[in-house]
Simulated scan of single mutants.
Amino acid sequence: MNFPVRAITLDLDDTLWPFAPIGARIERVLHDWLLQHSPATAEQFPVETMRALREQVFADHPHLLHDLSALRRLTLELALQRSGADMALLEPAYEVFYAARNQVECYPDAIDALARIAARVPVAAVSNGNADLQRIGLMQHFAFSLGSREFGAAKPSAGIFLAACDRLGVPAEHVLHVGDHIDLDVVGAARAGLRTCWLNRHDDAGQVLAWPHPDPLPDLEFNTLTALADWLDAHPQFAAVDSAMEPAPAWT
C-alpha cells in the first residue's frame, strides 16, 4: 500500500466525541426550557413526542437532510405553532438547542491526539452535523470546517470531499479521510478518490465491528485517534506539515 498523507479530513460526531449523550442532553434541556417559557408546548410535546415530530420532519423533508439546523428549526416551529405558542420563542428555543448541541464531551484520547495529528498535517473538519468548532473550543486544530449545510450536499456525496481537498490545495489521493461511519465516511471518501481511515471505536460492550464490505476496504483502521497519531509519528517522512510542500514520498 503506497501513498503519502499530505492532509487529513476528519469527521466530528462519533469520531471526536460521542453524539448519543449530546442528543439526550438536547432533549432534556429543551424540554426544561419549554416548561418554563411555553408550558403548553412542553405539555403537548414531551420528549418522546418531540422526538417523533423531529423524525417526521426529517422524513418529510429529504431535500433538507444536508441542513440539520434547518430541520431542527422547522421541528421547533411546528411544535410552537401546533401548541399555540408565541412564535417569538422560535429563535430563543433554537439557541437553547444549539447551545446544548455544542456541549460536547470528547473521547478521552481525542484532544491530545488531534493536536498531535494537526502538528503533522493540515486537518479539515468535514461533517454532516452542525457542530460549531469555535463554540466547542477546538477550531485552533483545524485549517477549516466544511459542513454539509455550507456545501449544499451531505456525505457520502463525492462533492463535499472534493471541495475540502480543493480548499486544502491537496490532490484527493494524498488526503486521508478519517471517520467512524462505514458508508458516509469510508465508502463515500474512497469513492471520491481519497484515502481512508476507519475509526472503529469499541462499543459499550468493548467490541469493535468487522468491516462489512468486500470493496472498498479502508486503507487504515484504528480504534482510537491516538493510534492514528502514533502511526503518523512512526512515519514522519511521509507526512507534510504544510500542504504547499513538495509531495511527500510514497510509503509502504
Rank of each mutant, 00 (worst) to 15 (best):
H235G: 01
H213P: 01
T15D: 04
L217R: 15
W211F: 12
D203G: 07
L232G: 04
L34W: 11
H37N: 05
Y98W: 14
Q237C: 08
A210L: 12
L138H: 04
N128E: 02
P122D: 05
K155H: 08
F97H: 10
V170R: 00
N102M: 12
D233H: 06
R101W: 02
P212L: 08
H202S: 07
H66E: 01
G23M: 08
D32H: 13
V29Q: 05
A240Y: 02
G193Y: 07
A210F: 06
D230Y: 03
S157R: 12
G137I: 00
G159E: 10
L76I: 13
A163F: 07
N102R: 09
A234H: 05
R72M: 11
E43M: 14
A153C: 05
A250P: 13
G23D: 11
Y98Q: 03
L217S: 13
P92L: 10
A59W: 06
A124G: 12
D204G: 14
T41F: 05
V57D: 02
V104I: 15
M245Y: 13
R54C: 06
L74E: 13
V96D: 00
R72A: 01
S83H: 09
D219Q: 06
A59V: 04
E173M: 10
E105M: 07
D219P: 01
R28E: 15
H141V: 02
K155P: 03
N130Y: 00
L80S: 04
A164Q: 02
V5Q: 00
A42D: 11
A210P: 04
E48H: 15
L184T: 12
S38P: 13
L68M: 11
L12Y: 03
I111V: 14
A239N: 03
V57N: 00
A115T: 07
L34A: 14
F144L: 04
Y107M: 10
H181C: 09
L225N: 07
A99K: 05
V170D: 04
R135L: 13
D112P: 02
S83G: 10
F19W: 09
A125F: 03
R120L: 13
G188P: 01
L168V: 10
L35H: 03
A70Y: 01
L12N: 08
R72C: 04
V208T: 14
D13M: 10
P39L: 15
L78Q: 10
A52D: 14
G188E: 05
L68E: 01
S243R: 02
Y107E: 05
P39R: 15
T196A: 05
A189R: 00
D242H: 13
A240S: 15
P39K: 14
F151W: 12
A20E: 15
M50Q: 08
I117Y: 00
V96G: 00
P218Q: 09
P236A: 06
A52F: 06
C197I: 06
I8R: 08
K155C: 03
E55W: 12
N2Y: 08
D215C: 10
D109L: 12
V208D: 07
E48N: 15
R6H: 12
A227V: 06
L10W: 07
I8S: 03
D32R: 15
T224L: 15
V5P: 02
